[in-house]
Design a binder for these strands. Sequence first.
DNA 1: TCGCAACAATTAACATGTTAACGAAATACT
DNA 2: AGTATTTCGTTAACATGTTAATTGTTGCGA
Lengths: 122, 122
Amino acid sequence: MAPIREMLAETGITEQQWRVLRVLSEFGVLDAKTLADRASLLFPSLTRIVATLRDKGLVTQTRDQKDRRRQFIEITDAGQKIIDDRADEAAQIVAEFKATLGAERYETLLDLLADLDPGARA
Amino acid sequence: MAPIREMLAETGITEQQWRVLRVLSEFGVLDAKTLADRASLLFPSLTRIVATLRDKGLVTQTRDQKDRRRQFIEITDAGQKIIDDRADEAAQIVAEFKATLGAERYETLLDLLADLDPGARA
DNA sequence: TCGCAACAATTAACATGTTAACGAAATACT
DNA sequence: AGTATTTCGTTAACATGTTAATTGTTGCGA
């Protein structure tokens, strides 16, 4: 993950913050529960990360009016721009990583890790 | 690592503290530099962990009289006892982990991870 | 309706990873 | 000797993982 962190250093956001933004970018508006699940984060971590992203203007929080315990989180244009600007670069880093192992061994690794963590989504 | 953490919960020490104790148990007295390296810890982390272990009476710190910048860390009897008491249990947890994947896939995983982290030892 | 269990989210407390700044001691070099 | 550099270790500051305690809401059953 080091190369990813280096890439993100310029943007001032962390790996996990980036992951949250990516999930929001992919799935759109999400309630906190679903977001935590998709980003593989525990709730207390998510609370802090979303607070940080909100302060940076990269996401918005909205209370569910039908159930005021819940909230929805949505990515802002500024947040989306960060994802867009780095998407290609991130893809290339993953590609290089893959090349280091070789495509076949890369797939093997993903399979092994998936078997070890039933919670992950391949 | 979850099963390991559960095992350690009873002892009141953490995974990393346990790793430091294990390294000290295996190699004997070590200077901080070597200890950090063998335990795969960054120096600031090691400083805190050793301080914690010292407060718990599980290790001792000794200044090098020839080079007073350096220090040696040694496990105490109390620390050694913790390792001894849990060694079998830990070995069994690893064995179960191995069984989950199967011996062959387990070796494959170690190989792949080793290729990804040149710093690791096997 | 009252009270209580269940749920969503936050907060607290502690340990660690991580980068940077700093302090002290030893070396090197002039 | 005197200063600059290097090295060892600590401390600071921030983000996160993790468990437990806490707050605010909802829903349910007596």
